[in-house]
Computed example of a mutant assay.
Amino acid sequence: MQLATVNRPQIPRDRLIRLPEVERVTGCKKSTIYLLMKRGEFPRCVQITPRMVAWPESAVLQFVQDRIAAAAAQQPGEGVAAA
Rank of each mutant, 00 (worst) to 15 (best):
M1E: 14
L3E: 14
L3V: 14
A4V: 12
A4W: 08
T5C: 13
T5D: 13
V6D: 08
V6Q: 15
R8N: 15
I11E: 09
I11L: 09
I11V: 03
P12L: 09
R13S: 09
R15G: 14
R15Q: 06
R15S: 10
R15K: 07
I17N: 05
R18K: 11
R18Y: 15
L19K: 13
L19R: 13
L19A: 11
P20N: 06
P20Q: 03
E21H: 02
V22N: 01
V22I: 01
E23N: 06
V25P: 00
V25I: 13
V25D: 07
V25Y: 01
V25C: 01
G27K: 01
G27S: 01
C28V: 01
C28I: 09
C28K: 06
K30P: 10
K30Q: 13
K30A: 12
K30N: 09
S31P: 13
T32A: 14
I33N: 02
I33Q: 00
Y34S: 03
L35D: 15
L35P: 15
L36A: 04
K38H: 11
R39V: 00
R39W: 06
R39E: 02
E41L: 10
E41Q: 08
R44T: 04
R44C: 04
R44Q: 04
C45W: 11
C45I: 05
V46N: 12
V46K: 10
T49R: 00
T49Y: 04
P50C: 06
P50M: 03
M52L: 12
M52A: 10
V53C: 09
V53N: 04
V53K: 12
A54R: 05
A54Q: 14
P56Q: 04
E57Y: 14
A59V: 03
V60T: 07
V60Y: 03
L61E: 06
L61Q: 02
Q62I: 03
F63V: 06
F63L: 06
F63P: 01
V64A: 04
V64L: 03
V64T: 12
R67A: 04
I68H: 04
I68L: 00
A69W: 00
A70V: 03
A72V: 11
A72R: 11
A73P: 05
Q74C: 06
P76N: 03
G77M: 01
G77W: 02
E78M: 13
G79N: 13
V80D: 13
V80C: 05
A81P: 12
A81R: 15
A83P: 15
